[in-house]
């Protein structure tokens, strides 16, 4: 099982609600990046720690986040 969190970077308003609900504390607002709207967008710092709970995506007011779970080939 390999989770993947995808951000629609330019739609992010940098509110940080996703950061606040992530149980693994692996999301952060990337202050080194300013998106087209002028916000510091949310990014995932360590994809390998993600448990694909989807909380970040569910809470995002702007539907910026897609969470996928790739089944690894056996």
């Amino acid at each position: 099982m390999k989770p993947e969190v995808i951000f629609n970077l330019n739609r992010c308003k940098g509110c940080g609600l996703c950061v606040s609900v992530c149980p693994r504390k692996i999301l952060k607002l990337d202050t080194s990046v300013t998106n087209i709207k002028g916000y510091h967008p949310s990014v995932i710092s360590d994809q390998s720690q993600c448990i694909a709970c989807g909380s970040c995506a569910r809470v995002c007011p702007d539907s910026v986040i897609t969470v996928l779970k790739h089944e690894e080939d056996t």
Partner: peptide
């Protein structure tokens, strides 16, 4: 690939005018 969450098809593909963190969204 399993989709855990993706943008709802019940929303139009537009950005809202709501402030960051507003619960309306």
């Amino acid at each position: 690939t399993q989709i855990i969450y993706q943008r709802s098809k019940g929303l139009k593909d537009v950005e809202t005018h709501y402030c960051p963190g507003c619960h309306h969204g």
